[in-house]
Design a protein around this nucleic acid. Structure first.
Lengths: 153, 153
DNA sequence: CTTCACTACTTGATACATCAAGCAACCCGA
DNA sequence: TCGGGTTGCTTGATGTATCAAGTAGTGAAG
Protein backbone atom coordinates (compact mmCIF):
# COMPACT_ATOMS: atom_id res chain seq x y z
CA UNK A 1 0.00 0.00 0.00
CA UNK A 2 0.77 3.72 -0.33
CA UNK A 3 4.51 4.15 -0.01
CA UNK A 4 4.92 7.26 2.08
CA UNK A 5 5.22 10.11 -0.43
CA UNK A 6 4.92 13.44 1.34
CA UNK A 7 2.24 14.95 -0.83
CA UNK A 8 0.46 14.58 -4.15
CA UNK A 9 2.45 15.60 -7.21
CA UNK A 10 1.08 17.99 -9.82
CA UNK A 11 -0.53 15.32 -11.96
CA UNK A 12 -2.24 13.72 -8.99
CA UNK A 13 -3.38 17.12 -7.76
CA UNK A 14 -4.82 17.89 -11.17
CA UNK A 15 -7.01 14.83 -10.84
CA UNK A 16 -7.77 15.16 -7.14
CA UNK A 17 -9.10 18.72 -7.11
CA UNK A 18 -11.81 18.17 -9.71
CA UNK A 19 -12.77 14.90 -8.07
CA UNK A 20 -13.25 16.70 -4.75
CA UNK A 21 -15.26 19.33 -6.58
CA UNK A 22 -17.49 16.63 -7.98
CA UNK A 23 -18.19 14.82 -4.73
CA UNK A 24 -18.82 18.06 -2.89
CA UNK A 25 -21.10 19.66 -5.46
CA UNK A 26 -23.10 16.84 -6.98
CA UNK A 27 -25.08 15.88 -3.86
CA UNK A 28 -26.19 19.46 -3.39
CA UNK A 29 -27.21 19.77 -7.02
CA UNK A 30 -29.29 16.59 -6.83
CA UNK A 31 -30.86 17.58 -3.53
CA UNK A 32 -31.91 20.93 -4.84
CA UNK A 33 -34.05 19.80 -7.72
CA UNK A 34 -35.67 16.97 -5.78
CA UNK A 35 -36.32 19.22 -2.82
CA UNK A 36 -37.97 21.74 -5.05
CA UNK A 37 -40.05 19.19 -6.97
CA UNK A 38 -41.26 16.86 -4.22
CA UNK A 39 -39.67 17.95 -0.96
CA UNK A 40 -37.30 15.00 -0.69
CA UNK A 41 -33.54 14.90 -0.28
CA UNK A 42 -31.64 12.80 -2.77
CA UNK A 43 -30.97 10.23 -0.07
CA UNK A 44 -34.67 9.93 0.74
CA UNK A 45 -35.49 9.63 -2.92
CA UNK A 46 -32.83 6.96 -3.30
CA UNK A 47 -34.36 4.95 -0.48
CA UNK A 48 -37.72 4.94 -2.22
CA UNK A 49 -36.20 4.06 -5.61
CA UNK A 50 -34.31 1.10 -4.20
CA UNK A 51 -37.47 -0.12 -2.50
CA UNK A 52 -39.40 0.29 -5.72
CA UNK A 53 -37.12 -2.17 -7.48
CA UNK A 54 -37.06 -4.68 -4.66
CA UNK A 55 -39.01 -7.92 -4.56
CA UNK A 56 -42.48 -7.07 -3.24
CA UNK A 57 -41.14 -3.53 -2.94
CA UNK A 58 -39.97 -4.62 0.49
CA UNK A 59 -36.53 -4.92 2.00
CA UNK A 60 -34.71 -5.40 5.28
CA UNK A 61 -33.46 -2.13 6.74
CA UNK A 62 -29.82 -3.14 6.73
CA UNK A 63 -29.86 -4.30 3.10
CA UNK A 64 -31.62 -1.07 2.21
CA UNK A 65 -29.00 0.98 4.04
CA UNK A 66 -26.20 -0.79 2.23
CA UNK A 67 -27.73 -0.28 -1.21
CA UNK A 68 -28.40 3.36 -0.41
CA UNK A 69 -24.78 4.00 0.59
CA UNK A 70 -25.78 5.09 4.06
CA UNK A 71 -25.47 3.93 7.65
CA UNK A 72 -28.23 1.99 9.33
CA UNK A 73 -28.64 4.79 11.82
CA UNK A 74 -29.12 7.34 9.09
CA UNK A 75 -31.65 5.12 7.37
CA UNK A 76 -33.52 4.56 10.61
CA UNK A 77 -34.01 8.30 11.11
CA UNK A 78 -34.99 8.81 7.49
CA UNK A 79 -37.40 5.86 7.58
CA UNK A 80 -39.17 7.38 10.56
CA UNK A 81 -39.76 10.61 8.62
CA UNK A 82 -40.82 8.81 5.47
CA UNK A 83 -43.18 6.62 7.46
CA UNK A 84 -44.65 9.66 9.17
CA UNK A 85 -45.33 11.11 5.71
CA UNK A 86 -46.91 7.87 4.57
CA UNK A 87 -44.37 7.03 1.87
CA UNK A 88 -43.08 3.87 3.51
CA UNK A 89 -44.26 1.36 6.10
CA UNK A 90 -42.17 -0.66 8.50
CA UNK A 91 -43.10 -4.03 9.92
CA UNK A 92 -41.46 -6.76 11.91
CA UNK A 93 -39.74 -9.47 9.91
CA UNK A 94 -41.55 -12.79 10.43
CA UNK A 95 -38.45 -14.96 10.07
CA UNK A 96 -35.98 -12.91 12.12
CA UNK A 97 -37.22 -10.99 15.10
CA UNK A 98 -34.31 -8.56 14.98
CA UNK A 99 -34.99 -7.38 11.45
CA UNK A 100 -37.37 -4.71 10.27
CA UNK A 101 -38.90 -4.78 6.82
CA UNK A 102 -39.49 -1.53 4.99
CA UNK A 103 -42.14 -1.50 2.28
CA UNK A 104 -43.13 1.14 -0.24
CA UNK A 105 -46.69 2.43 0.15
CA UNK A 106 -49.07 3.76 -2.49
CA UNK A 107 -48.16 7.23 -1.35
CA UNK A 108 -44.50 6.42 -1.91
CA UNK A 109 -45.17 5.11 -5.40
CA UNK A 110 -47.13 8.21 -6.18
CA UNK A 111 -44.33 10.51 -5.06
CA UNK A 112 -41.80 8.54 -7.09
CA UNK A 113 -43.94 8.97 -10.17
CA UNK A 114 -44.04 12.70 -9.64
CA UNK A 115 -40.36 12.98 -8.86
CA UNK A 116 -38.83 10.81 -11.57
CA UNK A 117 -39.15 12.99 -14.68
CA UNK A 118 -37.56 16.04 -13.14
CA UNK A 119 -34.85 14.01 -11.49
CA UNK A 120 -33.96 12.21 -14.70
CA UNK A 121 -33.83 15.53 -16.47
CA UNK A 122 -31.39 16.82 -13.87
CA UNK A 123 -29.17 13.76 -14.04
CA UNK A 124 -29.11 13.84 -17.81
CA UNK A 125 -28.33 17.51 -18.01
CA UNK A 126 -25.49 17.24 -15.49
CA UNK A 127 -23.93 13.94 -16.53
CA UNK A 128 -25.14 12.20 -19.65
CA UNK A 129 -25.55 15.24 -21.84
CA UNK A 130 -21.93 16.07 -21.11
CA UNK A 131 -20.43 12.59 -21.51
CA UNK A 132 -20.33 10.21 -24.46
CA UNK A 133 -21.57 6.70 -23.80
CA UNK A 134 -18.00 5.46 -23.73
CA UNK A 135 -16.93 8.14 -21.29
CA UNK A 136 -19.88 7.40 -19.03
CA UNK A 137 -18.93 3.76 -18.97
CA UNK A 138 -15.33 4.60 -18.08
CA UNK A 139 -16.47 6.92 -15.30
CA UNK A 140 -18.75 4.26 -13.88
CA UNK A 141 -15.98 1.67 -13.89
CA UNK A 142 -13.50 3.95 -12.17
CA UNK A 143 -16.10 4.95 -9.59
CA UNK A 144 -16.93 1.32 -8.91
CA UNK A 145 -13.32 0.46 -8.19
CA UNK A 146 -12.90 3.37 -5.79
CA UNK A 147 -16.12 2.51 -3.98
CA UNK A 148 -14.82 -1.02 -3.52
CA UNK A 149 -11.70 0.43 -1.91
CA UNK A 150 -13.75 2.59 0.42
CA UNK A 151 -15.83 -0.37 1.48
CA UNK A 152 -12.76 -2.48 2.11
CA UNK A 153 -11.37 0.20 4.44
CA UNK B 1 -30.76 19.90 -23.91
CA UNK B 2 -31.79 16.49 -22.58
CA UNK B 3 -34.43 15.13 -24.93
CA UNK B 4 -37.13 13.76 -22.67
CA UNK B 5 -36.33 10.07 -22.26
CA UNK B 6 -38.39 8.57 -19.45
CA UNK B 7 -35.58 6.93 -17.53
CA UNK B 8 -31.95 5.91 -17.77
CA UNK B 9 -31.22 2.83 -19.84
CA UNK B 10 -29.16 -0.08 -18.55
CA UNK B 11 -25.82 1.27 -19.70
CA UNK B 12 -26.48 4.66 -18.17
CA UNK B 13 -27.68 3.03 -14.96
CA UNK B 14 -24.52 0.95 -14.81
CA UNK B 15 -22.52 4.17 -14.79
CA UNK B 16 -24.87 6.18 -12.58
CA UNK B 17 -25.12 3.82 -9.63
CA UNK B 18 -21.39 3.59 -8.95
CA UNK B 19 -21.04 7.34 -9.41
CA UNK B 20 -23.70 7.92 -6.76
CA UNK B 21 -21.91 5.44 -4.56
CA UNK B 22 -18.73 7.41 -4.97
CA UNK B 23 -20.15 10.83 -4.18
CA UNK B 24 -22.06 9.50 -1.19
CA UNK B 25 -19.25 7.49 0.36
CA UNK B 26 -16.07 9.42 -0.36
CA UNK B 27 -16.87 12.48 1.79
CA UNK B 28 -17.56 10.28 4.79
CA UNK B 29 -14.37 8.33 4.26
CA UNK B 30 -12.31 11.51 4.10
CA UNK B 31 -14.06 13.03 7.10
CA UNK B 32 -13.42 10.01 9.20
CA UNK B 33 -9.65 9.91 9.02
CA UNK B 34 -9.26 13.67 9.41
CA UNK B 35 -11.69 13.76 12.30
CA UNK B 36 -9.77 11.01 14.02
CA UNK B 37 -6.34 12.55 13.39
CA UNK B 38 -6.93 16.25 14.06
CA UNK B 39 -10.63 16.73 14.78
CA UNK B 40 -11.42 18.50 11.52
CA UNK B 41 -13.99 17.72 8.86
CA UNK B 42 -12.72 17.43 5.31
CA UNK B 43 -14.36 20.73 4.48
CA UNK B 44 -12.61 22.49 7.35
CA UNK B 45 -9.32 20.94 6.34
CA UNK B 46 -9.90 22.06 2.76
CA UNK B 47 -10.47 25.63 3.89
CA UNK B 48 -7.13 25.65 5.66
CA UNK B 49 -5.31 24.03 2.73
CA UNK B 50 -6.65 26.58 0.26
CA UNK B 51 -5.62 29.39 2.58
CA UNK B 52 -2.17 27.86 2.97
CA UNK B 53 -1.57 28.14 -0.76
CA UNK B 54 -2.97 31.65 -1.10
CA UNK B 55 -0.93 34.80 -1.43
CA UNK B 56 -0.02 35.89 2.12
CA UNK B 57 -2.08 32.89 3.22
CA UNK B 58 -4.99 35.31 3.11
CA UNK B 59 -8.13 35.36 1.00
CA UNK B 60 -11.52 37.00 0.71
CA UNK B 61 -14.30 34.88 2.18
CA UNK B 62 -16.23 34.60 -1.06
CA UNK B 63 -13.20 33.52 -3.09
CA UNK B 64 -12.39 31.02 -0.40
CA UNK B 65 -15.93 29.66 -0.45
CA UNK B 66 -15.80 29.22 -4.19
CA UNK B 67 -12.49 27.39 -4.15
CA UNK B 68 -13.72 25.16 -1.33
CA UNK B 69 -16.85 24.15 -3.23
CA UNK B 70 -19.12 25.53 -0.54
CA UNK B 71 -21.61 28.32 0.00
CA UNK B 72 -20.59 31.58 1.62
CA UNK B 73 -22.98 30.86 4.46
CA UNK B 74 -21.40 27.51 5.13
CA UNK B 75 -17.94 29.03 5.10
CA UNK B 76 -19.03 31.79 7.45
CA UNK B 77 -20.18 29.29 10.07
CA UNK B 78 -17.06 27.19 9.63
CA UNK B 79 -14.80 30.24 9.82
CA UNK B 80 -16.36 31.21 13.14
CA UNK B 81 -15.50 27.79 14.58
CA UNK B 82 -11.99 27.75 13.11
CA UNK B 83 -11.39 31.25 14.43
CA UNK B 84 -12.61 30.25 17.87
CA UNK B 85 -10.08 27.41 17.80
CA UNK B 86 -7.33 29.78 16.71
CA UNK B 87 -6.67 28.22 13.31
CA UNK B 88 -7.74 31.22 11.28
CA UNK B 89 -8.21 34.95 11.79
CA UNK B 90 -10.69 37.24 10.07
CA UNK B 91 -10.17 40.93 9.45
CA UNK B 92 -11.87 43.70 7.53
CA UNK B 93 -10.69 44.20 3.96
CA UNK B 94 -9.00 47.62 3.68
CA UNK B 95 -10.01 48.22 0.06
CA UNK B 96 -13.63 47.03 0.16
CA UNK B 97 -15.61 47.50 3.33
CA UNK B 98 -18.00 44.69 2.46
CA UNK B 99 -15.33 42.03 2.23
CA UNK B 100 -13.77 39.98 5.00
CA UNK B 101 -10.26 38.59 4.73
CA UNK B 102 -9.49 35.21 6.24
CA UNK B 103 -5.87 34.46 7.13
CA UNK B 104 -4.19 31.30 8.32
CA UNK B 105 -2.65 31.54 11.80
CA UNK B 106 0.36 29.75 13.24
CA UNK B 107 -2.05 27.39 14.93
CA UNK B 108 -3.64 26.65 11.59
CA UNK B 109 -0.28 25.95 9.95
CA UNK B 110 0.60 23.66 12.81
CA UNK B 111 -2.62 21.66 12.47
CA UNK B 112 -2.08 21.34 8.73
CA UNK B 113 1.37 19.94 9.32
CA UNK B 114 -0.04 17.34 11.68
CA UNK B 115 -2.96 16.46 9.43
CA UNK B 116 -1.28 16.21 6.05
CA UNK B 117 0.58 12.89 6.27
CA UNK B 118 -2.43 10.88 7.40
CA UNK B 119 -4.71 12.60 4.93
CA UNK B 120 -2.37 11.95 2.02
CA UNK B 121 -2.12 8.34 3.08
CA UNK B 122 -5.91 8.06 3.03
CA UNK B 123 -6.25 9.71 -0.36
CA UNK B 124 -3.55 7.53 -1.84
CA UNK B 125 -4.95 4.35 -0.47
CA UNK B 126 -8.46 5.11 -1.69
CA UNK B 127 -7.70 6.65 -5.07
CA UNK B 128 -4.16 6.63 -6.38
CA UNK B 129 -3.17 3.16 -5.26
CA UNK B 130 -6.19 1.87 -7.15
CA UNK B 131 -5.80 3.90 -10.35
CA UNK B 132 -3.02 4.11 -12.89
CA UNK B 133 -1.71 7.57 -13.68
CA UNK B 134 -3.58 7.51 -16.95
CA UNK B 135 -6.83 6.47 -15.29
CA UNK B 136 -6.46 9.17 -12.65
CA UNK B 137 -6.02 11.76 -15.36
CA UNK B 138 -9.13 10.55 -17.17
CA UNK B 139 -11.14 10.61 -13.96
CA UNK B 140 -10.01 14.14 -13.21
CA UNK B 141 -10.93 15.34 -16.67
CA UNK B 142 -14.39 13.80 -16.56
CA UNK B 143 -14.99 15.22 -13.09
CA UNK B 144 -13.91 18.65 -14.21
CA UNK B 145 -16.41 18.67 -17.06
CA UNK B 146 -19.26 17.61 -14.82
CA UNK B 147 -18.37 20.23 -12.22
CA UNK B 148 -18.48 22.85 -14.95
CA UNK B 149 -22.01 21.71 -15.79
CA UNK B 150 -23.08 21.91 -12.17
CA UNK B 151 -21.72 25.42 -11.88
CA UNK B 152 -23.45 26.51 -15.06
CA UNK B 153 -26.78 25.30 -13.68
C1' DC C 1 -25.63 64.03 -3.42
C1' DT C 2 -29.18 60.86 -3.41
C1' DT C 3 -31.40 56.89 -4.50
C1' DC C 4 -31.50 52.27 -6.14
C1' DA C 5 -29.71 47.93 -7.12
C1' DC C 6 -26.22 44.91 -6.14
C1' DT C 7 -22.47 42.63 -3.63
C1' DA C 8 -20.31 40.55 0.63
C1' DC C 9 -21.08 38.69 4.57
C1' DT C 10 -23.44 37.22 9.03
C1' DT C 11 -26.89 35.30 11.75
C1' DG C 12 -30.78 32.46 13.59
C1' DA C 13 -34.03 28.83 12.87
C1' DT C 14 -34.75 24.45 11.25
C1' DA C 15 -33.54 20.12 9.51
C1' DC C 16 -30.35 16.67 9.05
C1' DA C 17 -26.14 13.43 9.81
C1' DT C 18 -23.35 11.20 13.02
C1' DC C 19 -21.89 8.96 17.03
C1' DA C 20 -22.35 6.34 21.10
C1' DA C 21 -25.29 3.86 23.79
C1' DG C 22 -28.88 0.77 24.40
C1' DC C 23 -32.09 -3.14 23.69
C1' DA C 24 -33.84 -7.36 21.79
C1' DA C 25 -33.36 -11.33 19.15
C1' DC C 26 -30.43 -14.80 17.48
C1' DC C 27 -26.65 -18.17 17.39
C1' DC C 28 -23.55 -21.42 19.16
C1' DG C 29 -20.64 -23.90 22.13
C1' DA C 30 -20.33 -26.23 26.55
C1' DT D 1 -30.35 -24.68 28.46
C1' DC D 2 -27.69 -21.21 29.55
C1' DG D 3 -24.07 -18.01 28.84
C1' DG D 4 -21.40 -14.86 25.93
C1' DG D 5 -20.86 -12.87 21.72
C1' DT D 6 -23.01 -11.03 17.61
C1' DT D 7 -26.47 -8.94 14.69
C1' DG D 8 -30.26 -5.66 13.60
C1' DC D 9 -32.27 -1.80 14.71
C1' DT D 10 -33.58 2.43 17.38
C1' DT D 11 -32.88 6.45 20.03
C1' DG D 12 -31.00 10.84 22.02
C1' DA D 13 -27.41 14.13 22.11
C1' DT D 14 -24.42 16.87 19.59
C1' DG D 15 -22.65 19.14 15.74
C1' DT D 16 -23.19 20.71 11.27
C1' DA D 17 -25.54 22.26 6.73
C1' DT D 18 -29.03 24.97 4.69
C1' DC D 19 -32.21 28.48 3.90
C1' DA D 20 -34.19 32.94 4.48
C1' DA D 21 -33.63 37.18 6.27
C1' DG D 22 -30.94 40.92 7.68
C1' DT D 23 -27.04 44.50 7.69
C1' DA D 24 -23.92 47.22 5.64
C1' DG D 25 -20.80 48.79 1.96
C1' DT D 26 -20.39 49.93 -2.98
C1' DG D 27 -21.19 51.72 -7.62
C1' DA D 28 -23.60 54.11 -10.86
C1' DA D 29 -27.45 56.65 -12.88
C1' DG D 30 -29.88 60.79 -12.68
Amino acid sequence: MSDEAPWLDDEEMAAWLPLIGLVMRLPGALDQSLRRDVGLSHFEYGVLVVLEHAEDQTMRMSDLAYLCNGSLSRLSHVARRLEKDGLLRRSACPTDGRSTLAALTDGGREVLKRAAPGHVRTVRSLIFDELSREEAKVLGDLAKRIVARIQAA
